[in-house]
């Protein structure tokens, strides 16, 4: 992965960004690493600040607010979505995706009052009529949350399967159930024929339209936190509320083939 190539090729605390392609899925974990480990680029410049300045120019990038003032946080999410093009999925779909991912970050990643960093980045590919949106946090991770909630699972990719299926740690009753990831996957993959990548600790799933692949990440590729990356096509999702309804069957059940990475 591009992020790993950059990190693995660093020299002391200095990283080389000349081949960086600004793919949101690579940029956000890189930002987290730069912030946490105080990496440098040319002439001892702080790598995190360097990337932040570049990203602000033409890619919608921001850290998610840590104010814990929910009105401020809601205002931030509204302003962020207004900068996106609602022809990608629709305003409601974009708002739903970003709101539910933010809910997950705030609810699940800050357990135990541990400081968690979280970021959102969006990039337009105008020529190909696609929009990438990536949200990342360096918090508990999906498997970590399941362990804290005493939920059984055998491997980290199975934890992701549960999270996007019909399961939640919030409650077992239909109306109380947390359904963020499940509904996002359906809106993107089924409603927009888009793509979604979810990476959390040693588990990963890549869904594109009706196809999906689960991965088990080796220890050297382990991701401490959760990354959700979405690619939307330039058309509006129809039948939104049908896609939000709970289902009895998980359309993304592990089918026996797990890829190693």
């Amino acid at each position: 992965m591009e992020f790993e190539e950059i990190i693995n090729s660093k020299n002391g605390d200095e990283i080389d960004l000349k081949d960086l392609k600004f793919n949101p899925t690579a940029i956000l974990p890189l930002l987290c690493e730069c912030k946490n480990k105080n990496f440098k680029v040319d002439n001892n410049v702080n790598a995190f600040e360097y990337l932040e300045n570049i990203l602000m120019e033409d890619i919608l990038f921001s850290g998610l607010p840590k104010s814990r003032n929910e009105s401020d946080e809601a205002d931030f999410l509204s302003r962020y979505v207004e900068k996106l093009d609602s022809e990608y999925g629709s305003y409601f779909v974009l708002r739903h995706i970003i709101s539910e991912l933010a809910n997950n970050v705030y609810d699940h990643s800050n357990i135990g009052n541990v400081e968690v960093d979280s970021f959102i980045l969006s990039k337009f590919h105008h020529n190909h009529k696609k929009l990438d949106v990536t949200v990342i946090d360096d918090g508990l991770s999906i498997p970590g949350l399941f362990e804290k909630s005493n939920v059984d699972f055998e491997n980290d990719y199975q934890a992701i399967e549960k999270a996007i299926g019909t399961f939640s740690t919030v409650s077992t009753t239909a109306y109380e159930r947390g359904n963020g990831l499940r509904t996002i996957v359906r809106l993107v993959a089924e409603g927009n024929d888009g793509e979604i990548l979810i990476v959390s600790r040693n588990g990963c799933v890549h869904i594109t339209g009706e196809k999906y692949w689960y991965y088990l990440l080796g220890e050297e590729h382990k991701f401490n936190g959760t990354l959700v990356s979405i690619r939307l096509n330039k058309y509006e999702v129809q039948n939104i509320y049908e896609l939000l309804e709970p289902q009895k069957v998980n359309n993304y059940k592990i089918n026996g083939v797990i890829h190693d990475y």
Partner: peptide, 11 residues
């Protein structure tokens, strides 16, 4: 009381 956008379950 909250906001014109109601995002968070905690709200």
């Amino acid at each position: 009381e909250i906001n014109s956008a109601l995002d968070f379950n905690q709200s």
